[in-house]
Simulated scan of single mutants.
Amino acid sequence: MSSFLYFVLPAVGGYALTSMILLKNPHILHKRKRSAFFSRHISHRGGSGERIESTMEAFTNAVEQGTEMLELDCHLTKDGHVVVSHDDNLLRQTGYDVTISSLDLKDLPLYKERLEVTFYEGHYSSGADRKIALLEDVFKKFPRMPISVEIKENNKQLITKVSDMAKRYNREEITVWASVESSIMKECLKVNDSMPHSFTMNRGVLLLLLFYTGLLPFVPLEESLLQFYLLRIMNRTFIPDSPILRNRLIASLLEKLMMRKSLFTHLADRGIQVHLFVCNEDEDIKAAFELGATGVMTDYPCHLTSYLCRNRSQE
């Protein structure tokens, strides 16, 4: 037994030391990713706290306020148009219990006059523009603005249309594939692997496993962005649908497990941007940057711009 420990303990110790050194110095094994953009200021659904979410008015306001990236979701209408909307079912957004996929573009209802901000309970937005936007119109109006496009359904026609639009408007390098589902991301990359992409949920779990086992510094990563919740907002400004996440103890444990500065710093050193969302208050914006986020996603682009101007030391 003693002879076994004589060999094993030095090996384990050597592995742990090597892993720690490489975690802090990833350039030893990995070439830093080069990106066509770097975004510290990201507008969630176009800045859904200042204008009605995902409308052209919201996107325009966010860009005017100095955002460096737009985040949006898209779906396909019955007659084949790619539109910008977080939900396929429009009950929450419009009051009509219908799906985008069941309607032609001309039949899509207008957004409600006042819409609650999903990640800021009790706060509402309004605006003159209540029309569901076309993704192509967003690409046309903001040709050089980086945009994260979340694909929520494994629909090859939708994915192909988004890819074709990114090519047509010469914006593949600044259009990001985003999806929670690995099966959807696999199809996105199959259609177009020239576009940068973010971590899916499964890949995020794997990332944590690699981090805690010490293997992360040795493993190549294809993703260009990690976009994830700032978990401290759970049950405070955002009440999750999941009963498990509503448990404050579980939410606290997840925060301690997942919000690791050494992990985020390692990713940033490898050229992988880390965007934490949705940060709508000063204390949350500050916490995100202190954790090592390279960018913050917000519903209030004007407020985030003000914060960054007031706290230039974090730039």
Rank of each mutant, 00 (worst) to 15 (best):
V205Y: 00
F228V: 01
L253T: 13
V83E: 02
D73T: 06
S148V: 02
L115H: 14
L158V: 06
C188F: 01
R236N: 10
K152I: 12
F289P: 04
S48G: 06
M259V: 04
N202L: 08
S262Q: 14
R45D: 12
S262R: 15
H41K: 13
D129N: 14
L29Y: 01
L308Q: 12
T294A: 05
Y6H: 11
A58C: 10
T237E: 04
I52T: 04
T160G: 00
S3A: 06
R34G: 11
N192M: 03
C309N: 04
M201G: 01
S198G: 00
D97V: 11
L29S: 01
T160C: 04
H266I: 01
G292W: 13
G14Y: 04
L276F: 09
S306G: 14
G122P: 10
L207M: 04
L216I: 08
Y120V: 07
N155A: 12
V180E: 02
C302A: 12
L103A: 14
G13R: 02
A268Q: 08
Y229F: 15
Y15I: 11
D129R: 13
I132C: 07
N89D: 12
D79G: 14
H303M: 09
S85V: 10
E116H: 14
H86L: 08
S262E: 14
L225H: 04
F7I: 03
L257H: 08
M1R: 10
R236S: 12
T160E: 07
P26H: 02
D193M: 00
